[in-house]
């Protein structure tokens, strides 16, 4: 049972990292708590369905295309909705909530409430030291880790990444240095939402898709991001591992409701006593 616990923890943690990364990036750069983040995960899942199962494109090509769709919708939302609320943390949070309702409603209107039937490109299991690991989950976790690494490269080694980090630290100073937030903002939103879209497209063949799947995704991203410190990427990575362990452990020993309760307890404690997150300076 312990080996299985380790497997579940590691596989979950990789997906949690991916879910949280986009959320924390958007907050870091734009100071927007994107409560519609889960809906971009959902958009990724549905985009995968359309590209792979309706248009018949192979999974390897459908996966990045699905993420691209989520990213593009993100850019449109940034331009039409969020830009008006820059600097208004509470206002942008509220408008994100309204956007979440709208996106969920739009997908329901187009696809109905039944989850679509999504083909599974990968099946079978590998056995490792007494634990069983499904290949599709292993693949999703591996791709998630690669994406996390790529995002890190983007932030530290490119001009765009530098601009994003500069705006995140001090938008005004960055503007004076000639960096235009009006290009960094859409870029951050595109990357953040595309990462969410990847998470949706990676998990949809495993767990299916439904219009309300974003709620659960948002909860996980929220917990990880707060535990890791809002806007902190290394913090989010550590927190994802922690949440993976907490979730798997308590769910196996007791039940998932208690696991959720514990994770919200941890969120409250961190915000009270270490608001900058587990890695931050209190």
């Amino acid at each position: 049972m312990f080996q299985q616990f380790l497997v579940i923890m590691a596989l979950s943690a990789a997906i949690y990292m991916l879910l949280a990364l986009g959320f924390t990036l958007i907050f870091g750069v734009m100071r927007v708590v994107n409560f519609a983040h889960g809906e971009f995960v959902m958009l990724g899942a549905y985009a995968l369905y359309v590209v792979q199962d309706v248009l018949g494109v192979g999974y390897a090509a459908a996966l990045p295309l699905a993420a691209l769709v989520a990213g593009l919708v993100g850019v449109v939302c940034e331009r039409l909705v969020f830009r008006r609320f820059v600097g208004d943390e509470i206002g942008s949070m509220i408008v994100a909530l309204a956007l979440a309702v709208t996106l969920k409603g739009a997908v329901t209107a187009v696809f109905g409430t039944d989850g679509p039937s999504i083909a599974r490109p990968i099946s079978g299991v590998v056995t490792l030291g007494g634990a069983v690991i499904p290949k599709d989950q292993l693949f999703a976790a591996a791709v998630a880790l690669v994406l996390v690494a790529l995002t890190h490269r983007l932030l530290v080694a490119t001009r765009l990444g530098l601009a994003m980090r500069a705006v995140a630290q001090d938008a005004e100073a960055a503007r004076l240095q000639g960096m235009r937030p009006w290009t960094t903002y859409p870029a951050a939103f595109a990357v953040g939402c595309a990462l969410a879209g990847f998470a949706g497209a990676l998990t949809a063949p495993i767990y299916g898709a439904a219009p309300d799947m974003g709620d659960a995704a948002l909860m996980k991203a929220f917990v990880v991001v707060v535990l890791g410190g809002l806007g902190s990427i290394p913090g989010a990575l550590i927190a994802a591992l922690l949440l993976g362990a907490l979730d798997a452990g308590i769910s196996i020993l007791f039940d998932p409701t208690l696991a959720a309760l514990a994770s919200f307890g941890a969120v409250i404690a961190v915000l009270l006593f270490r608001p900058s997150g587990i890695l931050g300076r209190a």
Binding site: V33, F222, L261
Partner: peptide, 28 residues
């Protein structure tokens, strides 16, 4: 006494967690 020391967006997130926790207590 404790939570009102937290301000701004952190307070919103804290109470988000608190609200979910209260409901989960009813469920559990």
């Amino acid at each position: 006494t404790v939570i009102l020391r937290v301000r701004g967006v952190q307070f919103a997130l804290l109470t988000f967690g608190l609200g979910e926790a209260i409901v989960l207590i009813f469920v559990e």
